[in-house]
Design a protein around this nucleic acid. Structure first.
Length: 459
DNA sequence: GCATGATCATGC
DNA sequence: GCATGATCATGC
């Protein structure tokens, strides 16, 4: 037992002053060597609670600091050449599907009351270090009520959408790609033993937790870290006036921006919006899509924060599918051999939100067909992509990196080279050199997405 | 005509 | 120079 002042019932300024003492230090510097480190993922946070604030870890409904009205969260940051980045999503609180269905107001919801005011402790995560040696980079209060109105509205839309899925009896179909900043992230081993009841369906749903998406956490922690303010000259916001979000959701607003251009040729749209666009550039279609959204920069603030991947796709009208499959980043054979499906790069990439912008060939030019948000259904991810990934891993491990699943083996995904040229190779676990490869979504599968979304998004 | 292997273009 | 997104080339 430590002889340590308990801050549980302190006022907010006192809690904050105590929190600031952490900045620039490690727990070892503050509390010495003689500390037992708990096992598991939350060790750092638990140590801060106990050593620095003098209370034992808990999972009460009540805030960690009820008087100050603050919930303590610790989150890791990693350093990259682009600056500090959140190491992972920030898990806020478990979703109780039965309770959520009863909660009509976001501002009075269990989620908001518990997580609307966070005391965030940001530490510098380094793989091989003990949590006692993490340097604390910054602390600060993050209040949803204090966020800019657009962010706040998008979070409220996300919460509403997750709740609506529960009301529709679709809690088991929720996917991390359904929402923008706040997502329903899976918890547990994914074996089914953590499944929960939902109120409007007899199907059990995986255990999920409200979480801020990793890309959003990156933006939350930046102002808390000294000297990490960034000028983002290549980025513009999509929504300029929060009033726009009072009558419609962020998703609706995005899709509405495409409406005036439906059915028009890409050349016609380009000459109206920006005659200077380079029509021969590989990114011409993506440029036109950004202009339709009202943005002239390469990046879009809300899409960066929500990690929304915008894909422009050209459909061959005859076959109702694109000519090309869709590539993902090349993998490293030895990395893939070591990963598990749940922490694989592929699962990560396919759990994102996509915004597809479809152009259809009319024989002479491409015309805007429609745009649609899309997330890969959990059943497809687990039932169809996972086997491809596992088979790929199996073959790499058994020395068959030059013989990976082809598009005939799955409806959804396959593996193909993705390199500068045939000499651009990567080393495999058994030491041979094989041309770099990546996972691809089959062109026919993209065609299915086109047809499904066309039904609900066309005029 | 498509599957598959190969390579280009661009931005950092 | 490399990663990534995009597209070409060819043999079945």
């Amino acid at each position: 037992m430590r002889d340590q002042h308990d801050f549980t019932n302190a006022e907010r300024p006192e809690v904050l002053a105590q929190a600031r003492l952490l900045v620039g230090r490690t727990l070892r510097q503050l509390y010495g060597e003689d500390v037992e480190v708990p096992k598991g993922k939350g060790a750092f946070g638990q140590l801060v609670e106990w050593l620095h604030f003098g209370y034992p870890p808990n999972s009460l409904k009540e805030a960690d600091f009820p008087v100050a009205n603050l919930e303590l969260k610790a989150t890791g940051a990693v350093s990259s050449r682009k600056g500090w980045r959140a190491k992972e999503r920030l898990v806020l609180s478990n979703i109780n599907y039965l309770d959520l269905a009863q909660e009509e107001q976001f501002e009075t919801s269990t989620f908001y009351v518990k997580n609307g005011q966070l005391l965030l402790v940001v530490y510098f995560w380094v793989a091989e270090k003990s949590p006692l040696e993490y340097r604390i980079l910054g602390v600060g209060v993050i209040e949803i009520a204090g966020m800019n109105p657009v962010d706040r509205q998008i979070i409220r839309d996300d919460w509403t959408k997750i709740r609506q899925a529960v009301l529709d009896g679709r809690a088991h179909e929720l996917s991390e790609g359904d929402t923008s900043y706040l997502k329903a992230a899976r918890k547990g081993a994914g074996t089914g033993q953590d499944d929960r009841r939902q109120p409007f369906s007899s199907v059990a749903a995986p255990n999920r937790a409200f979480s801020f998406r990793q890309s959003f956490v990156t933006r939350l922690i930046e102002p808390l870290i000294d000297g990490s303010k960034k000028l983002r000259e290549d980025e513009q916001a999509l929504v300029h006036d929060e009033v726009e979000l009072e009558t419609k959701t962020f998703d609706d607003l995005v899709l509405e921006r495409f409406e005036p251009f439906l059915g028009r040729t890409v050349e016609g749209i380009a000459s109206e919006l920006d005659p200077n666009l380079n029509r021969t550039a590989k990114g011409f279609y993506a440029d036109v899509a950004r202009r339709m959204l009202g943005v002239s920069t390469r990046r879009i603030e809300e899409f960066e924060k929500a990690d929304i991947i915008m894909k422009t796709v050209r459909i061959q009208s005859r076959r109702k599918r694109p000519r090309e499959s869709m590539a993902f980043p090349a993998f490293r054979y030895r990395d893939l051999a070591k990963q598990t499906w749940l922490d694989s790069d592929l699962r990560d990439a396919l759990s994102k939100r996509f915004l597809f912008v479809f152009f259809v060939d009319d024989g002479e030019s491409y015309r805007l067909s429609h745009a649609a948000f899309w997330a890969m259904p959990e059943t497809t991810l687990e039932g169809e992509v996972r086997p491809v990934w596992e088979e790929t891993q199996r073959r790499i491990k058994s020395g068959r990196a030059d013989d990976l699943p082809t598009s005939g083996e799955s409806r959804v995904a396959h593996v193909r080279p993705h390199a500068r040229d045939a000499a651009d190779t990567d080393i495999t676990p058994d030491g041979s050199h094989v041309v770099k490869k990546c996972f691809w979504l089959n062109a026919a599968f993209i065609g299915k997405i086109f047809e499904e979304t066309a039904r609900t998004n066309q005029p």
